[in-house]
Nucleic acid binder design. Structure first.
Length: 437
RNA sequence: GGAGGGUUCGCAUAGUGGUCUAGUGCGCACGCUUGGAAAGCGUGUGUGUCGCAAGGCACCGAGGGUUCGAAUCCCUCACCCUCCGCCA
């Protein structure tokens, strides 16, 4: 949610931002409606002032006659007031519908474009050549992750579908053990990093935090919903952001950094036919997410955005997976996002980089909806500072089992064996996953 | 699943239809006092919104209703606590 004042004062910027994101919204209609809202609110306030004054008169009236006269007057006023209040309710209803549709304004550095095809590469890394790394070459035809997992009895999709339906899966043997090894790796790395609070957060949550984070009402069809009206979250961001909803934080405690774990559920509506083989795109997975709240400053947001992006890159570098970072174009940004980097790791079987991490910042778009504030230092060093909305950011730390796709494909050998990344060997207790020759 | 109690200005409490635009205590801020501190005394002490300002309006868990007027009465919901039942 943007501040209506900001929208009124910067309607051209807001309109241009929406256009860049490819979102249709008529700002003039919203402002015209807001004019009505303001005018009506003023009239109602004046009537209420009259009513409040009369109330004192009635209470202190010397005679019943006097009292009666004012009451009759107020009865008439009340009828009038009621009509206006109902009119205001109608306007507010419409106003809110429009307000939650207004997207946040993308950063200047976000490239124009319609879809992920228009995202711009920022940098590349590969274990062979480091920065500016080339895409790796195989001297044999690389198998797909789906084939590799099956060949080593690390996954079972048929029984997955039998039990859990389309996109259902079981992970077995070294497939399951790789996930557990990765969990321990990422936990060890983030617990050695300053400032992150480890959290296990709810996956099932009320509607409010979904609206607060910007997933609702726009993406209703991407979410699973329970018969009690709760939703299953596609990311720990939802619950982690909800954690401090309606609270005021201390400036000295900022930035707040969560290392949040949760199961994730995504309906993948509209992805029919995409990535149907293997475990790249599935309905249920687990993820460690970095969620950050910081003071209300663009510079601070940018600094932390680079930091949490770097955290994810460090992990991929340790795993020695070739990757690139892209800056997402306007059309590939979510409603609330100001800027987003996707990190994509190399997928040899496809000859493409595929997304493993998504790192974005929102300014106060989410926290305005969630009502998360902090008290700023007062300008003169005395008394209270003003309350401000914190800024929010998030990035994947590690999502599983998706990362297995890139691991097994990049670490496959001509003989069919899969090497285990060096950093995982201690956790796995071996160096190689042997094929069943 | 059943029964009861609760949710008030940072904290604790008062408040059962009209001087409640919410009292008191604690805390906090500033000032006085003091050699310094404590105590004491005094003043102040939320958020949002409209307004150049003076000031107005809204907010007593949330949403509705009754009334000229609601923290207070009625309804619905959320959460917390206690007990009973069930379960781990």
């Amino acid at each position: 949610m943007l501040d209506i004042k900001f929208i009124r004062e910067n309607k051209d910027i807001v309109a241009a931002g929406a256009k860049k994101k490819g979102i249709k919204i008529d700002i003039d209609t919203l402002i015209a409606l807001d004019d009505k809202r303001r005018a009506l609110q003023l009239e109602i306030d004046q009537k209420r002032a009259e009513q409040n004054a009369a109330s004192d008169t009635i209470a202190s009236a010397k005679s019943d006659v006097e009292r009666k006269a004012v009451i009759v007057q107020m009865q008439a006023l009340k009828e009038n007031l009621k009509v206006q209040e109902e009119a205001l309710q109608e306007i507010l209803k419409e106003w809110r519908v429009l307000m939650v549709q207004v997207p946040n304004v993308p950063d200047m550095s976000v490239p124009d474009g319609e879809s992920d095809a228009d995202n711009k590469e920022v940098r590349r890394w590969s274990p062979a050549s480091g920065d500016g790394g080339d895409t790796p070459k195989f001297d044999f035809e690389p198998k797909t992750h789906s084939e590799l997992l099956l060949a080593h009895d690390m996954a079972d999709y048929e029984r997955g579908a039998k039990v859990a339906g389309f996109r259902g899966y079981f992970l077995k043997n070294d497939g399951a053990r790789l996930v557990w090894a990765l969990e321990r790796l990422v936990e060890d790395r983030f617990m050695n990093r300053e400032g992150f609070t480890p959290m296990i957060v709810p996956s099932m949550a009320r509607r409010e935090p979904f609206v607060g984070t910007g997933y609702l009402p726009q993406s209703e069809e991407d979410l699973y919903k329970t018969q009690d009206g709760d939703y299953l979250a596609g990311t720990a961001e939802v619950a982690a952001m909800g954690y401090y909803a309606d609270e005021t934080l201390e400036k000295k405690d900022l930035p707040v950094k969560f290392f949040a774990f949760s199961p994730c559920f995504r309906r993948e509506a509209g992805s029919h036919g995409k990535d149907t083989k293997g475990i790249f795109r599935i309905h249920e997975f687990v993820k460690y997410e970095q969620v950050v709240l910081c003071e209300s400053s663009h510079e601070e947001s940018v600094k932390l955005h680079e930091e949490i992006t770097g955290n994810a890159e460090a992990l991929l570098q340790e795993l020695k997976l070739p990757y690139r970072v892209v800056v997402n174009c306007g059309g590939d940004l979510g409603l609330g996002q100001v800027k987003k980097y996707d990190i994509e790791a190399w997928m040899p079987s496809e000859g493409k980089y595929r997304e493993t991490h998504s790192s974005s910042y929102f300014h106060d778009f989410q926290t305005r909806r969630l009502n998360i504030r902090y008290r700023d230092d007062s300008p003169d060093g005395q008394g209270h500072g003003t309350l401000r909305y914190v800024h929010s950011l998030n990035n994947t730390a590690l999502a599983m089992p998706r990362i297995l796709c890139q691991i097994v494909e990049n670490y496959q050998r001509a003989d069919g064996d899969i090497e285990i990344p060096e950093v995982l060997r201690a956790y796995m207790g071996k160096d190689v996953i042997k094929s069943n020759r």
